[in-house]
Amino acid sequence: MNASSTLGKDLTGLEHMTPDQIRLILDTAEPFKEVSERPIKKVPALRGKTIVNLFFEASTRTRVSFEFAEKRLSADTVNVAATGSSVSKGETLVDTARNLEAMRIDMVVIRHPSSGAAEFLGNRIASNVINAGDGKHEHPTQALLDLLTIRDKHGKIEGLKVCLVGDVLHSRVARSNLWGLTKLGAEVAVCGPWTLLPRGIEELGVKVFGRIEEAIEWADVLNVLRLQLERMEKGFIPSLREYYRVFGVTPERLERSPKAITIMHPGPMNRGVEIDSRVADGPHSVILDQVTNGVAVRMAVLYLLAGGRAELADAAKRGSE
């Protein structure tokens, strides 16, 4: 049995994955971490595979991270951005999908502003589809790299108290984290103004804190979400200044906790809005570790979906030595 059937054809989200599938990805990422530390950062695991990075939304970090992961696995990659492509000329998603399929590609990494877009694509093409963020739905590789980072820092995930702070309503990172964390046995909470917390979130088995002070008192890990600046224009919060005053993660607030709380952020940060610079750059911040782990996790996902076997990941990366 190859690992492709273990994970299925696509990675569209963590909601419908099993804990074992998630652990498999994290475990497979471990040996790939080392590849990025080499002088020659390349292994032949995906040699001959063609991958399209299809980005209908602006992205720097995620796109670059995927591209490095693909290149370090020796895949041939093409980047398609919405601006300047046929997409901006009114081509529908289904036509884009069919055209890609007609070019006989192996994998598509898609970011799209509509929730469900990755699943939509995956249901219509034979290639593997990896969701790099769809609307407000899921961003599974971000959650996987968050899980890996938490595991690195704490040696475990089970039993840890993790709070997602901020704009949970519009956050695909929050949803994927919520599924991934609960499946691996963490306790999960969300904290933010009630205008930015989705209806029915309690029914998903998470705690809800209306005040950041309560969240800090409770948590082992704070994953501070980016506050999109347009939320203020759309009236969800009155001002960035007030948001910082009421919900900002500051050293003063963290000092009141007896624990050394691990600080995470999926980026890009708004320093002085959702997170104080002294916290982002402080000793308990693992924000840059998240970025480093992002490449390894994406290498693992690409490798496994392409049919690579987890136990051979070590051998695969030795191929270039």
Binding site: E15, S115, K136, H137, R199, L204
Partner: peptide, 15 residues
């Protein structure tokens, strides 16, 4: 509909 399913699917709800 604005509710649990919309929250899970990440779709904007109509209350």
């Amino acid at each position: 509909h604005e509710g649990l399913v919309a929250t899970r699917l990440g779709l904007k709800g109509i209350p």
